[in-house]
């Protein structure tokens, strides 16, 4: 299966799960909104040019926005994490090993700790930016922080459950292949 086809399927899957499952379940608490759709951006292959990364991020956010009827909200957050993603990867990975040996970020290719840091940073960026845009103010800063932490926690939980349930098989690329 080619990368393109695989990612199109993932894209559809994540958006549908996000809208028809995670947004439809009864709200757990006013501070907890489960988000997972942006895992699609986290899972994109290493070799995508940064320009296309931004385009894909924008389209991902916008497609969810058309479900939630809030044009621009998720798109802005997704563009932000799509922009930051290469920097984080550069910091966390030595340039000449995994990026060339594997196709996309995963616990197996990066190691659990760097991958967790990678997910955590992007999740925090995504949620804080989106919350800020949603409220257009910090409001009560405590409320903002608590909501940010709770939402990040639940996303973190969802992402790692996904990683454990659906371990992606990462082929080790060599020059000979």
């Amino acid at each position: 299966m080619s990368d393109l086809l695989k990612n199109i399927i993932r894209f559809t899957f994540f958006i549908l799960v996000q809208w028809f499952v995670l947004f439809k379940i009864p709200p757990l608490h006013r501070f907890i909104v489960p988000y997972i759709y942006y895992l699609f951006i986290l899972w994109l292959p290493f070799y995508i040019p940064r320009f296309w990364l931004l385009v894909i991020g924008f389209l991902t956010g916008l497609s969810l926005d058309y479900f939630t009827q809030t044009p621009g909200l998720h798109a802005a957050a997704c563009v932000l994490i799509a922009y930051i993603r290469p920097f984080i990867i550069n910091i966390l990975l030595p340039k000449d090993t995994s990026e060339f040996n594997y196709r996309e970020p995963s616990p197996r290719t990066m190691g659990w700790t760097p991958y967790a840091v990678y997910v955590l940073i992007l999740t925090l960026f995504h949620h804080s930016y989106m919350l800020l845009l949603e409220w257009l103010s910090f409001g009560d800063f405590i409320t903002f922080a608590v909501k940010l932490i709770a939402t990040t926690g639940i996303s973190f939980l969802l992402i790692f459950t996904t990683e454990l349930l659906f371990p992606r098989k990462m082929r080790y690329r060599t020059n000979t292949a």
Binding site: R50, L54, G72, A75, V79, Y83, L136
Partner: peptide, 28 residues
Amino acid sequence: FTFFIFLVFQVLALSFLFRYNKYHHAVG
């Protein structure tokens, strides 16, 4: 270049946000 593209998309997203959402429109 990437940074400018990033800004372009951000502006686009924010313009959507402030144009089509009643709350954001009002607050903006």
